[in-house]
Design a protein around this nucleic acid. Structure first.
Lengths: 183, 183, 183, 183
DNA sequence: CATGAATGAGAATTCATTCAT
DNA sequence: TATGAATGAATTCTCATTCAT
């Protein structure tokens, strides 16, 4: 396999399982089946390795968002956004945990955090459109965003822990969110 | 001041500002105005110091919850719970950030995490009562809890960052949550 | 013994014997009879440890210079300067080798190199006085200085390698230098 | 260009600019426009590459010495030796710096250091002849040699730093040396 | 109880060297 | 011969913890 990908994959696994500061580079190397020096051929240091993983995840997240049909009604489009995002997190629990860890850490550069906000921007646009059309509550968008973010995290978290019939519950969760923000 | 308290206060400050692994015990000692050895007189090791801070915060959270009048309607009681909890976090931003960091870290012992769930248990009881009375949506309670948790974090986070007229916005946030979970 | 001094002494010994880049901090610690961490309690890093040794030596050199009677004739004073300097280097061969290594290395900070030039400045003053009085050749002082420096190093080097009757030979050497620069 | 020569040239440049231990083989390869492995086709290891450069320089030095007419008087021949040597160093500042670095380093093998002493031997022969003829001071030759060495280094050093009308100053320097050693 | 110098295990990072292509 | 990705031993530096005062 591609060594660079193997390193990122192993790093993600261990970072999530043991935390950033309990994961020595040497262990990442062992898990990836490479020498320690090989990691440094691809990533100048630990911090940039972690940032690289972050950007990868955010890129995939954006890709998933781009699959949503933007010709639909605000409600449908919003629900689709939620659907693909929550599905994405449920199907990649490591991504979810990784993002959770990075949230309260100064490791990710401001620049990469910016890049990662693309999906949020797409939702912001939709929410504003919805407010203009009178279907979304007329609150500060930042307030809505932070609420939705919390709800999404909560939903993903719950599904990852309770492996029940997923589809049904995700839909329930999404309608919970929609009920909260719709006018 | 009580030395033990001084140590916990300084530790909390630095832990939140610089992260657990960038806060040496020596710096905590300096900030607290004690010697390093003194910390070890009160706390056997760094991990237990952090756990002690965690338990302290959770104890205060519980105290705040206990101030809520349980003779009111489900809606009023629920809104009061939210109100005191969000206020508590907004007024103690360090607590909020500390809890955020501890969430995705293996540092807090299972036992102390348990202790910290007392307030959650109180909300669970209320939600079940509300479901029986038909005022709360009939979903799995764990689902509701995780949703509410996310929403509370989101609300506190927004208010700590945007220092606007608080009361009004907190109320808006709470009604957002209530709209979402009420039947 | 004073640990800080023990560390500097051991470091000097090993640095001279094995070269800067073949002397791990761990070995310095072992030689000094301390733990590695102890070194870092006194010196923030290897570079500053080395700089500290450099400054120490230069301070001692200056002290030795200050013992010279400045009421004497230019010739006598010059010969005294040479005498105490060469003696100082012969009696501290490690200093001599250390300075030789540092000369062609970017390790010593500009600031410390400046500090180390105090003795040179004293000689410059004397040479200028001698030129005014017509007893020193009328060349650029920087040229004379660099020549004298080379001669001193050469003399010290020879005496350290050939452990003959020192006094006599040092005097010969000094008169060699004086013959060269006197008008 | 010949790859072997390109490697030695690049190595010399970087070694002088950045120091032996701050010059990775990979950078030498890049500077030389070859792959890292290619270096190892020509030089078994870094140490031998450096030794090879040392020997090259010393060979050139010897060649330059051999251009001196040995039919002249001791004084003329001595001054010619000094002239060609100092010129050689001034015109090849990298050689000068490289030799300076190697002097206090255990990298050059004893065998190669020996080879490098051929020019010194030629001067020794001349000095002895001069002593027999009564034109050179009757000191131990090793003493004279070490003194002359220091003076040459000093002269080259001064000229490399002060790019003035060279010829005149080199002559001044040489007569300084001659004044010092002549009887 | 209070102190802080001393310690050394552990982590990140570098780079000479190898070897499959 | 030429290449450069892969390697891991070696090095610097950090910091939780101890213990003599």
């Amino acid at each position: 396999m591609n060594k660079k990908e193997a390193i990122k994959k192993s790093a993600l696994k261990l970072l999530v399982e043991k935390g950033v500061h309990n994961t020595p580079m040497s262990e990442i190397a062992k898990e990836a089946g490479t020498g320690m020096g090989t990691i440094y051929n691809y990533f100048p240091n630990k911090e940039l390795l972690i940032n690289s993983i972050y950007v990868d995840i955010k890129d995939q997240e954006e890709e998933v968002f781009n699959s949503v049909d933007t010709e639909q009604s605000t409600m449908i489009q919003f629900q689709m956004y939620m659907q693909v995002l929550i599905d994405f997190l449920i199907q990649n629990p490591r991504y979810f945990h990784f993002l959770g860890q990075m949230e309260s850490s100064p490791l990710i550069t401001e620049e990469n955090l910016m890049k990662g906000r693309k999906t949020v921007d797409m939702v912001i646009v939709l929410l504003k459109k919805g407010q203009d059309a009178g279907v979304i509550k007329n609150m500060e968008v930042s307030q809505l965003i932070v609420f939705i973010g919390g709800a999404v995290r909560a939903s993903a978290s719950w599904h990852i822990q309770n492996d029940k019939n997923k589809n049904e519950f995700v839909e329930q969760h999404i309608s919970l969110i929609w009920d909260a923000i719709s006018a």
